[in-house]
Amino acid sequence: MTSEYRPTLPERGPSAADLAERDAFAKLAAESLSVTRKSAETWRTGLSAFVTLVTAGVVVKGRDSTSAMTTEWRLAVTLLLGGGLILAVLGLWQVLGVQAGIPKSVTLETIRARFASVAAFEVSIASDAADGIRRAQKLVAVALCLLIGGVVATWWAPAAPARPPAYLKVEHGSSTSCGELQSADDGQIRLKVSGAGAPVVIPAASVANMAVVAACS
């Protein structure tokens, strides 16, 4: 035959310090959700301004900053800046979700079945919200690294090599001249030949052949 369980009284009742701890924790639990939401609101305001500022800078200066780069460097800068913007927006979205609150309706029965009390439910929601803010902080930290990397890359990226100038090779009489074309008027062709102080003037009537070449050999 099983004996009936009889709870026993503790040796002493809660002290004043124990009661103060209990009341302090109850107050902390009651305010945790509102404090977390205020923190999310602060982060949301800052992130909104940050994303707006960075987006405007990238849109306005992006093409000017990358137009003179090689294709490889332009692709790298695009990935860095674009990835940074995407992560910053994701961080903002995360904070907005935290600030928006509970995504679906709940009932008292559901809260009691899962959390036992409304206070425990609020603490759980506040904990989830704090986790969301930490995830947003990590996303923004990575976004900042990518954006800074993209900006630094625009400072140090080498300019794309200029297209090689076209040289004109002219066969005239028994000579051949090659250089940059300066003018062709009044029946004369003027070439800027490397090593010559004055342009070489060739009468058009003496030209036997001419061709555009990439370099004068």
Rank of each mutant, 00 (worst) to 15 (best):
S3H: 12
E4D: 09
Y5F: 14
P7N: 08
T8N: 13
T8C: 13
G13I: 10
S15Y: 10
A17P: 15
D18C: 06
L28K: 09
E31V: 08
A40L: 11
T42E: 05
W43A: 02
W43Y: 08
W43Q: 05
R44E: 00
G46V: 01
A49K: 06
A49L: 04
T52K: 05
T52N: 03
L53D: 10
L53W: 13
V59N: 10
V60E: 07
V60W: 14
G62V: 03
S67L: 09
A68L: 04
T70H: 02
E72S: 06
E72V: 04
V77Y: 04
V77A: 04
T78R: 05
T78S: 03
L79G: 11
L80D: 01
L81H: 08
G82E: 00
G82F: 04
L87F: 09
V89Y: 06
L92I: 01
Q94P: 07
V98Q: 03
P103T: 01
K104Y: 15
S105A: 11
E109Y: 09
R112G: 00
A113G: 04
A113T: 06
A116T: 08
A116L: 09
S117R: 04
V118F: 09
A119M: 08
A120E: 02
F121M: 02
S124G: 07
I125R: 10
D128K: 14
D128S: 12
A129D: 06
R135D: 05
R135F: 14
Q137A: 08
K138T: 10
K138S: 09
V142L: 06
A143E: 01
G149V: 01
G150S: 03
A157T: 01
A160C: 05
P161L: 00
L168G: 05
V170G: 04
E171D: 14
G173A: 10
S174K: 15
S175G: 13
T176Y: 15
C178N: 03
G179P: 02
E180Q: 08
Q182F: 12
D185T: 07
G187K: 03
K192L: 00
K192R: 07
V193P: 03
A196S: 13
V201N: 07
I202G: 05
P203R: 13
A204E: 07
A205N: 10
S206H: 13
A208L: 15
N209K: 14
A211G: 13
A211W: 15
V212P: 04
C216E: 04
S217D: 15
